[in-house]
Design a binder for these strands. Structure first.
Lengths: 69, 69
DNA sequence: TATATTTGTACCCAAAAGGGTATATAAAAA
DNA sequence: TTTTTATATACCCTTTTGGGTACAAATATA
């Protein structure tokens, strides 16, 4: 799953609003919003600040071989 | 494995120098160096440009539960 | 429906990323 | 060892991030 939806789902599963998650993660509200909307050019350390709250960290994962056509 | 060493090992396994990898990934040489040295505040999209060459992408991975002491 | 809550978009601005490049250091080869 | 190759550090500069904030749009609740 893309990080965007991963964060959104995790956040909802623990019933937090975006402002609450921003607060807990120590990032700005704007960042949470851009993150959940899939902005690609976010800073790695900031993303880590957020997902570590859920026990995750950013890492390299194998891409699924795509089926063409 | 941290992304830093992941990139370094993958790069060496295919016998590329840092300038060559930078060229192929379409990022600056400086970026490859900071990446392999573990700089935390890199941009996600740039990291993706690099590791997708090896068939990987950035994603959320579970942190190993740490043993304290 | 109306009202409250949550989420998305737009603006300004300081701080930082990252490209290019030159130089220094380290490692490998002759 | 000397010579070549590879990697690390430092500087200048432009572009972009991300914080703060205000407002709009969407969603949920009464």
């Amino acid at each position: 799953m893309e990080i965007a939806n991963f964060v959104k789902e995790k956040r909802k599963s623990v019933r937090l609003t975006q402002p609450e998650l921003a607060e807990k993660a120590g990032v700005g509200l704007r960042f949470i919003r851009e993150l959940e909307q899939g902005k690609q050019s976010l800073r790695l350390d900031k993303v880590n600040q957020v997902i570590q709250l859920f026990g995750y960290e950013v890492g390299a994962v194998k891409k699924k071989p795509t089926t063409y056509l």
